[in-house]
């Protein structure tokens, strides 16, 4: 039987200074959970978020940073020739927070 993932995971994230803190994920699918960090709109890091509820991104490159939690949504194993999933994907599961590095 192929797995069906129902509902939508949701978590609240916040900033404590430069430290990112997340609450528990509700409707947690148990798949990969990542912090996605963008600087000036470009993804600069994706960091595993499951092991710990907090993370501090140490990059001090100046810019406008925006962070969101993402979780993998499985919708099939199919992949393109480059090995990327064609249907399954990471989706955003939290609010976004931002900060500026000077």
């Amino acid at each position: 039987m192929e797995q069906v993932f129902e509902g939508t995971p949701q978590a609240e994230i916040r900033l404590e200074g430069r430290k990112l803190v997340r609450g528990d994920v509700t409707n947690d699918w148990g798949s990969q959970l990542l912090w996605e960090i963008r600087r000036n709109g470009e993804v600069v890091a994706t960091v595993p978020a499951r092991a710990n509820n907090s993370y501090e991104h140490t990059d001090t490159t100046p810019g406008q940073y925006e962070v969101v939690l993402q979780m993998f949504k499985y919708e099939g194993y199919a992949k393109d020739p480059a090995g990327n999933f064609t249907k399954s994907k990471m989706i955003e599961v939290s609010n976004k927070v931002g900060y500026t590095v000077g």
Partner: peptide, 8 residues
């Protein structure tokens, strides 16, 4: 949620 909302 702690177990994961999936078949396993």
């Amino acid at each position: 949620d702690r177990y994961g909302r999936n078949t396993l």
